[in-house]
Design a protein around this nucleic acid. Sequence first.
DNA 1: AATCCAATCAACCGCCTTCCG
DNA 2: ACGGAAGGCGGTTGATTGGAT
Length: 351
Amino acid sequence: MGGHRCCSKQKVKKGLWSPEEDEKLLKHITTHGHGSWSSIPKLAGLQRCGKSCRLRWINYLRPDLRRGSFTEEEEQIIIDVHRILGNRWAQIAKHLPGRTDNEVKNFWNSCIKKKLLSQGLDPTTHNLIPCHLRAPNSSNNNKMACNQSNIPVFTLNSQMTSNVPLENIKPPLLPNNYHSTLIQPITTTTTSDYNQNPINNNIVWNNIANNNDCGQNSYDPTSTFPDVISSIEDHQRPISSTSEFELLDDNYYSLWGTTNNYTVEETTFGAPASLDGNQLQQVQNGKVCEMEIEKMNEVVMGIEENINMDSSFDSSSFDLEFAESTLNMSGAICARDDHLISSMDDFAWNF
DNA sequence: AATCCAATCAACCGCCTTCCG
DNA sequence: ACGGAAGGCGGTTGATTGGAT
């Protein structure tokens, strides 16, 4: 289309399609199939570019299209997959039968984006937007997190999938310039009943750097761990350089561990008993995180399967592209032994 | 009833990738 | 291996629609 060779030789019509044009295209494709798109306009008697015909078919005429507004379930799928894949609309649309990439993209830009922003979430990274960067007129949920009278803290949720002894729990991977500055555990809410309920082992960390300033303060990247954390420093996997965290978003709100998976969520200490905006947000984030863990497990299983089969990766049984993007998502960086894995090649190499 | 404005959506544009000779 | 053609995709634009004033 636009300046494309297939359209440059002849006059092509632009703009909205008339019912007559639709009928011609529909009739031609249903009887002959589309074959080569560039030859369609001539064969179907249309003064359109081949690419325009293709687009019209894909986005409007093909019979398997699902019409009507998006359901809540579809919306959630879009959000979840977007969190992993980013603006890869065609990939996202594959998860929604009958929906087109254009439709998903439009829905994202017109609805979901605004909804996430109103929840204080960055639609690009899906992480909480730091208070000082949020729009001044954003929702009360954001004001809650920024309330100067509340102590900003992080809740560290360790997502355990098996009954791992407490002493084996490793702290999350944190970039040097983050963990060196700020965190100090306040409470370990379920340590005592860990063996009974290992899934909900929540540790609340005080963000000592962020107290009462909503994170606007500077920090010293050369400073050392607070004493209280240094006791578990042996378990902390060292990060050799911050460049290894280039894939992470600027704020490092969502971080992954190696043996365990963690999310770090901004929350407010002493929040009301009822479910407020922040808590709702945490629920939402948790849901997304669970999905990421699921996907991550799929990635690992997929790789292991392929390796066990002693064959090269087969794209028909394992979506390498998806796996790689999963590795890259939300700063998901895995490490095995002393090596950080930041690409699919690294990942495969280390198994 | 007229006007304005924001939301929505179809379609275009241009770049990148894949295919094929 | 190379280059041109075609297809695929994400970003953007502009027309339309519908609600508010």
